[in-house]
Amino acid sequence: MIDLHLIGIGTGSPDHLTRAAEKAMHAADLILLPRKRADTAALLDLRRALCAEVLGDGARVVEFDLPERDPNAPYLTAVRDWHAAIAAAWAEAIATHLPDGGRLALLVWGDPSLYDSTLRIADRLRCEGMALRVSVVPGITSLQALTAAHAIPLNTLAEPVTITTGRRLAERGWPADVDTVAVLLDGGCAFDTLAPENIHIWWGAYLGMPTEAVIEGPLAEVAETIRTRRAALRAEHGWIMDVYLLRRTGPQP
């Protein structure tokens, strides 16, 4: 039996770890760290630093190559194939480094429950016959980090919020019947697809890190500033993780 602990780590800062997360890391027989392409090596470095900060030199940490998603295939097909490849990589690492079972930990950006597929990949392994018992240690979500950075509430009084992706916002526009939209996983600047009048934006990147960047204001006034800042940060670091909140402040054109 493999006891798989999916540990939410926020943005990778030790300050974002809960006490439960630290306990789960200490209890693990093995922690798997994914290696991505070279231009995102800083993401692996952050996980390494987190393990060193919490566990010192005694941790059993193993790195594995994370498969990449095919950018040319239809989106859902590419994601399903990608998940299957990641599940196979997990299975190989487990067979090699934890063949007799034990406690395995994976460190998940943000929280495993919010726009993350780690739980779906674990389900694949169970469906394929692996004896796998999954537990989740919740972490700081990007939305918590964003609203904290701007010192704002997520919603307006007695009103709902829609959480969506940049792809969805660009394809379908503003969701119906809500005045507040939280946007994650935006590979570009999907807010450019909206008529900017009477929309306020709160944007943040690298939230909780020393490189944190935040911008807020009327979308019509700050959209270009965000685009320019985002491009510069991505060029500087080789990767970017950002999130933003949009709120209607008046009638739409």
Rank of each mutant, 00 (worst) to 15 (best):
I2S: 01
L4M: 10
L4A: 10
L6W: 06
G8I: 11
I9R: 06
G10P: 09
G10S: 02
S13P: 04
S13I: 13
D15L: 12
H16N: 11
H16C: 04
E22A: 14
E22Q: 15
M25Q: 08
A28Q: 09
L30R: 06
I31G: 06
K36I: 07
K36N: 06
R37P: 01
D39V: 11
T40A: 13
A41I: 13
A42W: 06
A42K: 07
A42N: 08
R47P: 03
A49Y: 04
C51Q: 06
G58T: 11
A59Q: 08
V61Y: 01
V61F: 05
D65L: 02
E68F: 07
R69D: 04
D70Y: 04
P71T: 03
P71C: 05
Y75H: 15
L76N: 10
R80F: 05
D81A: 15
A84Q: 11
A85M: 07
I86M: 14
A87D: 02
A88R: 12
A88T: 13
W90G: 04
A91Q: 15
A91W: 03
E92A: 15
I94L: 11
A95D: 15
D100M: 03
G102Y: 12
A105H: 07
L106F: 11
L107R: 08
W109M: 04
P112R: 08
S113A: 13
S117G: 14
T118E: 02
A122P: 00
R126T: 10
C127L: 14
A131Q: 14
L132K: 00
V136N: 01
I140M: 15
I140H: 10
S142Y: 02
T147Q: 00
T147A: 00
A149G: 04
H150M: 13
H150C: 11
H150K: 12
H150P: 10
P153N: 14
L154T: 12
N155G: 10
A158L: 09
E159Y: 01
E159F: 03
P160E: 06
V161I: 14
T162R: 04
I163K: 06
T165G: 03
T165V: 00
G166D: 05
G166T: 10
R167T: 12
R167M: 11
L169N: 08
G173Y: 02
W174I: 00
D177R: 13
T180E: 00
T180R: 07
T180V: 12
V183I: 15
L184S: 09
G187P: 01
G187M: 01
C189V: 08
D192E: 15
T193K: 13
P196E: 12
E197Y: 05
N198K: 05
N198S: 12
A205K: 13
L207N: 01
G208M: 05
M209N: 14
P210Y: 01
E212T: 11
A213K: 13
I215K: 03
G217C: 08
L219F: 00
V222K: 08
E224Y: 05
T225E: 15
I226Q: 02
T228V: 11
R229Q: 13
R230C: 10
R234P: 01
G238H: 09
W239A: 09
D242T: 06
Y244M: 05
L246A: 05
T249S: 15
G250C: 04
P251W: 04
Q252P: 01
P253R: 03
